[in-house]
Nucleic acid binder design. Sequence first.
DNA 1: CACTCATTCCTTTTT
DNA 2: GGAATGAGTG
Length: 824
Amino acid sequence: MDFDHLLDDLTPPQKEAATHTEGPLLILAAAGSGKTRVITRRIANLIGCGVPPWSILALTFTNKAAGEMRERVHTMLDPQGDDPRLTRGLTVSTFHALCARLLRRYAELAEHDGVKLGIKPDFTIYPAADQLAAIKAAVLALGLSTSNWPPRSVLSAISAAKNELLDAEAFSLRASDFYAKNIAKLYSSYQAKLRAANAADFDDLLVLTAKMLRDSPAVREECQKRWQYLMIDEYQDTNHAQFVIASLLAGDGPEGGIGPNVCVVGDPDQAIYSWRGADITNILEFEERYPAASVITLGENFRSTAPILAAADALIRNNKQRKHKDLYTSREGGDPVTVVLCRDERHEAQLVTDWLRSHAEDEDGEGARWREMAVFYRTNALSRVMEDALREAGVPYVIARGTAFFDREEIKHALGYLRVVANPADDVSLGRIVNTPARGIGATSLGRVREMAQTTGLTLWEALGRVEDVPGLSARATNAVRTFVETVRGWTGGGAFMGREVSGSLAELVERVVRESGLERMYTKQAQTSKSESDAERLDNLSELVSSAAQFEEDYDPASDPFAFPAGDSFAPAADPQADAADATTDPATTNTNNNPAEQAETPPLLAMLRAYLEKVSLVADADAIDPAQGSVTLMTLHAAKGLEFPVVAMIGLEEGLLPHSRAQTSESDLEEERRLCFVGITRAMEHVQLTSAKYRTIRGMTERTIPSRFIEELPREHAKVSDQSDAWADTSDSLHNDASDGFDAGPTDGHSRSGSAYETKPGGKLAQARRELPVGSKVRHPQFGVGEVLSLDGGASVRAKIKFKHVGVKTLVLEYARLQRLP
DNA sequence: CACTCATTCCTTTTT
DNA sequence: GGAATGAGTG
């Protein structure tokens, strides 16, 4: 097949980067320089040159970026979509997802090699809330107070240590002062808790993988043999642990050669994660580690108009600890950046809304361009006022917060149950749910059980199973525990996931858990008594969870699940490159773990699926939730904006203390990172940027006078027009009703007169939004079901659409999850 | 033991 | 403004 045309639309430097396939390569790619394009072409080119797809590993920052990259490579090589084998086995993943996967697959092999990881392949990934709970328990267990040792800061100290690959022991050896010594104690106590629960936190995924690759020759060789070509995107934001993993995966390359085929892509000017342990010196380290590395700089910007780029360039030049690189564009013309000073945050939100609307209207397709707009802010808290204004104005918007759904109380509880089902040793989850809803197992009783577990060395779950051995427990509490244990056993079929009661369907399991746990009843009751809208929403959210599980079940491919057995997809062996990669499935892991075949071979399919589901849920990032196919303005933090582009961009809250943030002004390098953050925001914009600053802002209930961000002054006046609107806004309290002429007076008294549907009173409501974007009769495409037509929409917190598909008939889908694409 | 209400402390950014 | 404790009552 001829793939030469793939490179036709690249500039000479881009082409050089895309075709430089052998040996170490560092690509310094300025903002908007077509980085993603180069990476995807490079992968496609490799495959076109005959490199087997399964020997290519590409690491990205978010799952979303990974998915997009995979898709783009695929459509490039296989526009007809009729030959999945062309990219079969290509691995595109985030560091964390890859690590989770490697650990599951190789943990046992590594243990066999004498490497003590302390986790079994079915380990649980602890979400942030559970991490904090575990830390807090550790603090209390050491007899310290949580006010002197706030779990948050303890956790971030531990996290920093982990990112430097210091385990508890190494940390303890270095600890010299009182503070560090206590952190060391907490660190090891926290680790002990995680291990006892067969759990790993986010950082552990990296730490343990690094350890496994470093200490187990079998695993390292296996991986090095398989992945001959390694690519890492957003390299400036990788931390030390990630550097070590990458370098262990890459190996040294052929003997006497110039080094392994490892290609890293990054831009020091966009490094915004130093607080997470990311280290710009990784880029320097790269050249040190691979002295023969080639370096290619991509400086031409293809995204932004000249004034936007000039403003961004002027801003970033203020960073002293920086190697300057020229930014240039061949795009002529374009409007200057606008800077607007507003009275307060509500005024700001109003002006931004008006500004967005003006750009929506001056384009041909009326109202159709919301999706091309974004609002960025430094902290999540700033989104609320913006949301209010957009909702009020009837502008559709989405917030890029993928984790928000899973952070809700009711969802956390339901997932807590599911985690216990998947891993009964998970004490933290068990603790969360054992008495939610209240079932008579209160703090006192639970404390007794915990005590007994502690002294006998049992897990909490095991102790609950032997409740009769717990001293001093009331008959009532004993009975309550028995009932609880029975209920959970009913879901797991006593741990075997077999039997009359266990159906094998994930969605059904989730539904049963929601119902039989009593969560459903609890929230139904609350909704009836309190009539608060949020309580009614909880029920909707729970059924949405069931839908998401159903969706997952539909998309689930057991072959790509590291639990499934035997797996034969992407881990095809490197042994015989000539053989058909798709079919040659002598899986290395399955042949090597025969020392313990019982455990793996008997992992029931439902359990495997449940674990895969929980893993997916644990690894979602905010940026993953962005769906530009929806016709909405996107709201997100500056951090989440990295890697994206929008024709129209508004940045709010350009004030001292917010951007640069007050917590990031202690050192010059902190301040420079804030400046890079601002730079990242501006360079996302293709056509128009507006920066706003409010004279007064209410934070945590306190209204304070602000100072405009120093970054505003750093913008050149010829490319950044400042307009002071802060006095144009009369200081009257009814400011938000100013636009009542728009017709959105949603007073409760006349809400019903306008329309038969109660939802019509909320112009920005999800259902109304869905009706605008996906009216009945629209044609849509679903990744699984193909082409269909919308029959009806109905709502609540989760909008569902009935869709008639050509081939599979009528389906009801939750819009948020169904990746629908609207067809003309 | 469960539930309600008042008080306290926050929040930077995220895989 | 809001989540997360803690005291106090049924």
